[in-house]
């Protein structure tokens, strides 16, 4: 069976993002970029399914600038077999990305699409659900455990008060939460091998998708800064301050 894994290139999670001086967005020029951490988990899950013999082929997809090639190479170094770059300079939104993915799903006919639950740049948490909606297929979001057995997948999902289990007929859409697995680092030999793996390059127009964003950014600003307070010497002083100064207890 075939798995499609969409991956996004984002500012590395260890880097503190800086708002551009003109308030038009967040600075990405000259900033270290990496694969969205949740997407790494999605790739890892697909690779593990392949190692178990459940999956025969993994296709990584990225929608974005030409540089997203690096992210696809990382996915292939982790174990994806081939990749597709859908190149666009237009700002991507979950809706437009879901439309691109729908077109690719119709072409590639994967049994499973595994995405990260959210991208750590726009924090939208929407693409997987939207793809499932557009395809009219079942969804298992915020997955912490995935079990594929003949024709269906059982997904344990993280919900607010605990966890929930659903069973989905294939093809199905899954979005990965942090606890699904711990992604591997690509080894040097695998990074070398990934360079020779096939990468197809197309554009949204080839798939007939209009990428025009529905949300326009009016401005981007730094949040109000919290000031560091004071260090106290004892629990007694803390309790007294909380009671008499902050008046919160």
């Amino acid at each position: 069976m075939k798995v499609l894994v969409p991956v996004k290139r984002v500012i590395d999670y260890n880097i503190k993002p800086r708002v551009k001086a003109d308030g038009s967005g967040v600075e990405t020029a000259g900033v270290k970029m990496s694969m969205n951490p949740f997407d790494e988990i999605a790739v890892e899950e697909a690779v593990r399914l392949k190692e178990k013999g459940v999956v025969s082929e993994i296709i990584a997809v990225s929608i974005g600038e030409a540089k997203a090639q690096d992210t696809l190479r990382t996915a292939m170094a982790m174990g994806a077999d081939r990749s597709i770059l859908v190149e666009t300079d237009v700002v991507t939104e979950p809706l437009s990305v879901a439309k691109v993915l729908k077109a690719l799903v119709e072409k590639e006919k994967p049994d499973l699409i595994i995405l990260g639950k959210q991208a750590i740049d726009d924090d939208m948490n929407a693409t997987g659900q939207m793809l499932a909606g557009l395809l009219g297929r079942p969804q298992g979001t915020f997955a912490s455990k995935v079990d594929v057995t003949d024709g269906s997948v059982t997904v344990m999902r993280e919900i607010d008060g605990g966890s929930q289990t659903v069973k989905l007929a294939l093809p199905a859409i899954i979005t990965a939460d942090l606890r699904l697995n711990e992604p591997r680092y690509a080894s040097l030999p695998n990074i070398m091998k990934a360079r020779k793996k096939p990468m197809e390059k197309i554009t949204p127009a080839d798939l007939g998708v209009d990428m025009t964003p529905r949300l326009s950014v009016v401005s981007v600003a730094e949040p109000p800064e919290r000031k560091a307070g004071i260090k106290l010497d004892s629990a007694a002083e803390l309790v007294s301050r909380l009671r008499n100064e902050a008046k919160v207890i």
Binding site: I11, K16, P17, V19, V26, I120, D121, D122, D123, L215, S216, V217, V218, S219, V220, A221, E222, P223
Partner: peptide, 11 residues
């Protein structure tokens, strides 16, 4: 956005 490192006003 970005884990609260920035606030975006969107229309």
């Amino acid at each position: 956005i970005y884990a609260g490192s920035a606030l975006a006003t969107v229309k």
